[in-house]
Design a protein around this nucleic acid. Structure first.
Lengths: 193, 193
DNA sequence: CGCCTGTGATTGAATGACCAACCAGTTTTG
DNA sequence: CAAAACTGGTTGGTCATTCAATCACAGGCG
């Protein structure tokens, strides 16, 4: 029954963390939510950070968005993202919070950095496919991925900070900007100083 | 000498908060950095949150980016942003962190929400000017502003999380996407459900 | 079959540290 | 001399982590 308990602690940690926030969540809270003794949490996780990282990986699974390849895949991903924004605010809330915490916590920061790099990589390969479909120069794929993934993070942030924010239209605008423009003239791309 | 001390506490709070992070910063740390007694901090600020909000407003001043109007203003703003990313990582680090904290702290959340709404408003009015210059439909200005400001936040996040991230090319891509495309075909903008 | 024993799971209390907020009192200033 | 600025110790609480002690349950052995 070992793996079971471990899993239960992770789930409970997710529940409590996304409800109360990182700095208002104690190991005791998590143990109570899971219905186990406080000490057991440290039996499975060396430290609070280790537990939070396990939760982070769990959260990332909940936010996968890629279901197809090429231009259709991109369109689908944007649509999936719109759905996630409506259905998983708890996961997004926690994710944004851990970004902040990770800026000053080495372990959590490494987890976040890995995740962001990986996600941007997926966007980049999607961008590369689209540019190939259109027989365009694939060079700007990396930069586009940086901007598009930035848009995704930023829309997430705005939606979580302000529920009134019209995320759907922002996602549509981001999709249109990234899909229709594709950099007709090759402006930009010079690095000053 | 009152306003002077108050200012000094805010500056010191900024220094310590951006260095150590919100949950690793105590009033005592801030008082020490400012060279005043612990109690004085609470003399000027009712609570830790009130102090942090004062710091937040101070930080926002450091990140103003708008120097001109219309299309030239937008280009300039993107360039200014690139410079800020290089010169004020401390302010950005703190800002991102407070976004996370604000998700579960009413007072700080209200400050962040106000700031984001206001910034997006400025982007929107810039977008509206550009669409007018091009004699295009001004309707999508709000959605574009949401996506562009999202890009700004997201690039900030990626740069702070990972110093290796090429922010310049991402900003250039975002600028190109938002300035050159401007939504030729009117796809998107339908709200499902 | 009943007993024993070793191991991993689990408990809850103890530890040592820290913190925000408060306040009684002192110094400075106008 | 009063009000404002300032001090630093106290309070009541919380926290992550540790640990000695139990529990459940396995298989081995008589």
């Amino acid at each position: 029954m070992s793996g079971d308990t471990r899993e239960k602690i992770i789930k409970s940690a997710f529940t409590v963390l996304s409800r109360q926030g990182y700095e208002n969540t104690s190991i005791k809270d998590i143990a109570e939510e899971a219905g186990v003794a406080q000490g057991l949490v440290h039996y499975y996780f060396k430290s609070k950070q280790q537990l939070v990282i396990a939760v982070l990986f769990d959260v990332c699974k909940k936010m996968d968005v890629y279901t197809a390849e090429g231009e259709a895949g991109a369109t689908a991903a944007f649509e999936n993202f719109k759905v996630l924004l409506r259905t998983r605010p708890d996961a997004h809330t926690l994710y944004i919070q851990l970004i902040g915490v990770g800026l000053h916590d080495k372990e959590i920061g490494a987890g976040i950095r890995e995740n962001i790099t990986q996600e941007r990589g997926r966007v980049e390969s999607l961008a590369r496919q689209i540019l190939a479909q259109r027989e365009a120069d694939p060079a700007p794929a990396r930069a586009i991925a940086g901007a598009v993934w930035a848009g995704v993070i930023g829309i997430m942030v705005q939606k979580m900070v302000d529920p009134e924010f019209n995320a759907d239209e922002a996602v549509d605008a981001l999709a249109a900007m990234s899909l229709s423009a594709v950099y007709s003239t090759n402006q930009g791309a010079q690095a000053p100083a």
